[in-house]
């Protein structure tokens, strides 16, 4: 039994760690400048926290015998949507910077 709880704890810790590094990874690839890195971090922070909470709720749903499907689908959609939105806005900033440099 203690081993079972240890495995559970470690898998949750692993999930949070993977999430955090994914978050830093996406912030790094979406940034254009160091300044935009902080802005991107901030804009991705709440979707990350929310999707993590949704995964936590899905886990507890399984424990208490409720359906976890809604939470999991929403968590994946939210994080994916946030990354896509961040990528699109960083792309448009990149294009705007290139256009203004070309004009000058």
């Amino acid at each position: 039994m203690p081993l079972f709880y240890l495995v559970r704890f470690l898998s949750m810790y692993l999930l949070v760690t993977i999430y955090f590094y994914l978050y830093l990874f996406f912030c790094k690839i979406l940034k254009n400048t160091e300044e935009q890195f902080m802005m991107t971090c901030k804009s991705l922070a709440l979707p990350l926290i929310t999707s993590l909470c949704l995964f936590a709720f899905s886990y507890f749903s399984v424990v208490i015998g409720a359906s976890a499907v809604g939470f999991v689908v929403l968590a994946l959609s939210l994080f994916g949507g946030a990354v896509l939105f961040g990528y699109k806005s960083s792309l448009s900033k990149h294009t705007a910077t290139y256009t203004s440099e070309a004009k000058s």
Partner: peptide, 13 residues
């Protein structure tokens, strides 16, 4: 923004 959707899901939880 994505922020509004995230907040509107997080706050009820």
């Amino acid at each position: 923004s994505v922020f509004l959707i995230s907040f509107a899901v997080l706050m009820p939880m």
